[in-house]
Write a protein that binds this DNA or RNA. Structure first.
Length: 402
DNA sequence: GAGACGTGGGT
DNA sequence: TACCCAAGTCT
């Protein structure tokens, strides 16, 4: 222990991880100020109609890394389709995934159903009320445990999300990097001191409403905050330093050939993705990962559509044909042009897809793999498509459907 | 603890 | 264009 650390310890026994905690009187005034603001300004959201733990649970899972405006229509449809925990537990996976299509982070909905089955089997169909039990449910981590405990059951549990860390780091001038998972415990400890024991659910939600309306990541105006008198970084003029947040890694580029192949009946070849990993169990046109050669010639990956060298074009087409024959047992007539390039950015990957279009004759589309189907466009809505697939289909419609 | 895991919106 | 962001969790 350094001298300065021992001085800090000696200076204030109420420190939390070196951060001086307010007096009880100040904490009381803060609670009252924040909750009064929340009573006036709280948003009218569909999952705030009552304290039903199922409704709160579903909303919290949907809201993970996802905006309120995006969630609302999905939420209304989801509660309509699966009105009870039992209905959710019994749903067929494709129906379930369809209800989540376009929301992203699809393991959320698989975990949601798994947890519903846990509740049916282990908790007699009712969400447990003990935070320790709640956190045993699949897909429910420390944040969601706190959210359900406080909002549905009135327990004084912290629900520390990005909003709470941002607001707290400005209130207390906290230098801990909020992008580091290990630092969450600092903010939880502070929230345990601050949280209102009588209205813990409102208190937690007030932090989130404050974080999404006034205490925003950008265009932050601390002078507009209802709790500005408690805001140490505002009082000290240091608010632009907070929160401290390290940068994310850049998405890694990956290159594909996408093959939109139509047979003589007008159906298109779709392939179901593996049951684990990225976009699990969703449907796409055949995709061939590119590791090509073209890089060596100096032409960058991702600019496949701009190849004007005939030799290189021929090389790519040859490879596409070979892969389609090997993996899908088809020998389509590929169209020379037009073809498109589709880009899609995930959190950790950036896909570049050069899309080729091809046609088959009647006798050639029998022997495709088990995880593939020929599907008419009028039936596409029965298949769960991820973003890149939708973009590939749009590229086709733009070029051929008029 | 770092990386995997989606998507759409804003600057 | 290329970032950053939005109510995280799992491995």
């Amino acid at each position: 222990m350094t001298l300065s650390e021992s001085n800090l310890d000696a200076a204030n026994k109420n420190d939390i991880y070196g951060i001086p905690m307010w007096s009880q009187e100040k904490i009381d005034r803060f609670r009252e100020t924040l909750l009064s603001w929340y009573d006036l300004e709280k948003r009218d959201l569909p999952w705030r109609k009552n304290n039903d733990p199922y409704r709160i649970w579903v909303s919290e899972i949907m809201l993970q890394q996802t905006r309120v405006d995006t969630v609302i229509p999905y939420y209304l449809n989801f509660m309509n389709t699966f009105p009870t925990i039992e209905a959710l537990a019994q749903a067929h996976e494709d129906i379930l995934l369809k209800a989540w299509e376009g929301l992203g982070y699809y393991s959320r909905v698989r975990n949601l159903q798994f947890a519903a089955q846990q509740i049916m089997n282990d908790y007699n169909g009712e969400m447990p009320t003990d935070p320790k039990e709640i956190s045993k449910l699949k897909g429910i981590g420390p944040y969601t445990t706190g959210a359900i405990s406080s909002m549905a059951f009135g327990l004084p549990e912290p629900a520390v999300d990005g909003n709470v860390m941002r607001v707290l780091s400005r209130l207390f001038e906290i230098d801990a990097d909020i992008a580091k998972p290990g630092n969450r415990k600092i903010f939880e400890a502070i929230m345990r001191e601050l949280i209102d024991p009588y209205k813990p659910g409102d208190f937690n939600q007030a932090f989130m409403d404050l974080g999404s309306s006034i205490c925003t990541p950008k265009n932050y105006h601390p002078e507009l905050s209802p709790v500005k008198e408690f805001n140490q970084s505002y009082q000290n003029g240091t608010w632009e330093k907070y929160p401290v947040k390290s940068k994310k890694k850049k998405a890694k580029p990956v290159y594909y050939i996408g093959a939109i192949i139509k047979n003589s009946s007008g159906a298109f070849l779709l392939e179901k993705r593996p049951e684990n990993g990225l976009l699990a169990n969703m449907w796409t046109f055949p995709m061939i990962e590119e590791e090509i050669v073209i890089q060596e010639t100096g032409i960058a990956h991702g600019t496949l559509t701009q190849i004007d060298d005939e030799e290189q074009t021929e090389q790519v087409v040859k490879k596409v044909m070979a892969e389609l024959e090997k993996n899908y047992k088809i020998k389509p007539t590929l169209m020379e042009a037009p073809f498109a390039e589709v880009q899609h950015i995930f959190s950790h990957l950036k896909w570049f897809i050069a899309v080729y279009y091809g046609q088959l004759r009647a006798e050639e589309f029998i022997d495709i793999p088990e995880n593939c189907y020929w599907v008419m466009p009028s039936d596409f809505d029965q298949y769960v498509f991820p973003g890149p697939q939708t973009k590939m289909w749009q590229s086709y419609l733009t070029k051929f459907d008029h």
